[in-house]
């Protein structure tokens, strides 16, 4: 996630229009203006969003005061009494970092990064605000891509491949007399205790050797798949 973010940041090519430094205005009623400028990602990143100004809003303290973005990306929020405010730039496609702006009773402005955990930590940012898009907002999970290994490790493919393996490879193994002997031994040792699958395998292997009729009846209740193999 973070990696992607950095990638976006490094790729981001910002509009290099310089913000004209505006003078802090003071009104008779002790109300101030918060000013700043929004920088979207460059056009080749934004694609068809040529009208981003109309859909961008600036919220002060979650909508207590509202600012709108002009054509050049600048915004001014009027009638704000002194205090501490969180400025958020909202756009449905882009993420912007919120900024805290403090206006003291004398009308001095200070802007800093929002830090909810260490509230006293001051990480100052320039005022008038220059708010840049961090990147495109990711709302969606990405569907997993098709990969050959996925197909291979698909349980159903495994299910198909295993019998093939059993048919093709095991008869080869059986031709080796030593393994044959070993298997026979295993079979004798684990006549009744063996779990089903190994029994099936060993029965299949044993089918080429002598078979007692008793064992045959023992296997009747088992999976039919092995029957063509065991049938003599």
């Amino acid at each position: 996630m973070n990696f992607y973010l950095k990638l976006f940041l490094s790729l981001a090519f910002f509009l290099s229009v310089h913000a004209d430094i505006s003078v802090e205005e003071e009104y008779g009623s002790g109300r101030y203006v918060i000013e700043g400028r929004v920088f979207p990602l460059s056009d080749y990143q934004t694609g068809n969003l040529n009208n981003w100004q109309a859909t961008t809003r600036v919220h002060v303290n979650g909508g207590e005061f509202i600012g709108f973005v002009k054509k050049d990306g600048s915004f001014a929020i009027h009638n704000i009494p002194s205090g501490s405010y969180v400025i958020e730039v909202l756009h449905s496609e882009y993420t912007f970092e919120p900024v805290r702006v403090e206006i003291n009773s004398k009308g001095k402005f200070r802007a800093r990064k929002v830090n909810n955990i260490q509230t006293s930590l001051i990480n100052q940012v320039p005022y008038p605000l220059k708010i840049k898009a961090l990147g495109k907002t990711r709302y969606f999970q990405i569907r997993e891509q098709w990969r050959a290994t996925d197909l291979l490790f698909n349980p159903m493919i495994m299910m198909m491949l295993l019998p093939v393996l059993l048919i093709m490879v095991l008869p080869r193994l059986m031709n080796d007399p030593e393994t044959k002997k070993d298997l026979e031994q295993i079979q004798k040792m684990t006549k009744f205790e063996v779990p089903q699958v190994s029994e099936v395998v060993s029965n299949f292997l044993a089918s080429n050797t002598v078979q007692s009729p008793a064992k045959d009846s023992n296997k009747k209740g088992q999976k039919p798949r092995k029957r063509p193999v065991t049938k003599e």
């Binding site: 973005v69 002009k70 054509k71």
Partner: peptide, 22 residues
Amino acid sequence: NTWLVRTWEINSGTLLSEWPLN
């Protein structure tokens, strides 16, 4: 006693100007 006078572009709804009226 606090008013905002705003002008908007007619096609897109972009803000053109804004000034307070107190």
